[in-house]
């Protein structure tokens, strides 16, 4: 009887340990190369953003090189549209593309988001509190000649254990004066997933 009790106690203790093995905190990590593709789940991930951005940057630079444009194009953003069923940080994608294009020296971007703050600052500088010889006067802002926009759509096919996710990102550059779309390109991404066969 004593052995039975000891055995049951061991069993209970071991089962308790088993029960303690539930969801755990992420307490260990390491820095990795952000350009390496990692697919931990089936959601939109940083690799997708980098692949879309890379295609658009290369395509826009190729368009610039192929066309004899005398002046550096001044571009303003039309916020890209997320037409998928999941959350995608479109601003992060746009900033990724914008940074690379500005650094290439071929495109100039106007800061649309800062307009109100700049107007407020100019108003303050012209109010008399600031030395008039140093105050920035209005009327020198550049005019945008191109509007950059884009959208991302997705299609999901799911049957049994298999899931296929398809993204299509389309970007375009529109001449503000003529509304003609001067450049457009798209990037297609397809990701195949398979659910694990056994699990809780």
């Amino acid at each position: 009887m004593r052995r039975l009790v000891i055995g049951c106690a061991f069993l209970a203790a071991a089962m308790s340990v088993t029960a303690c093995g539930g969801p755990r905190a992420f307490t260990r990590g390491s820095y990795e190369d952000p350009s390496e593709i990692v697919l931990l789940d089936d959601k939109w991930n940083p690799s997708d953003m980098q692949l879309v951005a890379k295609t658009m940057i290369n395509s826009m630079e190729a368009w610039y090189d192929a066309n004899t444009i005398s002046d550096k194009p001044k571009v303003i953003l039309e916020m890209p549209r997320n037409r998928t069923t999941e959350h995608i940080d479109m601003l992060a994608l746009y900033e990724h593309i914008r940074t690379a294009l500005i650094n290439s020296g071929k495109f100039g971007f106007l800061d649309k988001d800062a307009r109100q703050e700049i107007a407020d600052e100019m108003q303050y500088q012209g109010s008399g509190y600031v030395d008039p010889s140093e105050a920035i006067t209005p009327g020198k802002q550049k005019a945008a000649s191109y509007l950059m926009g884009g959208s991302i759509t997705s299609t999901i096919q799911e049957v049994g254990k298999n899931k296929v996710i398809y993204y299509k990102a389309t970007f375009k550059l529109t001449d503000i004066e003529t509304t003609e779309i001067l450049w457009t390109d798209h990037k297609e991404i397809r990701k195949d997933f398979k659910k694990k066969s056994i699990g809780f």
Binding site: I37, V38, L39, Q50, L51, K54
Partner: peptide
Amino acid sequence: EPGRTDGPEGSEYGTGGYRNYRTGG
């Protein structure tokens, strides 16, 4: 080796790190 996003177009096909990150199975 896991693919990269900064390689030539198409170099990322068919690769991915998820096999090394599975939580069971």
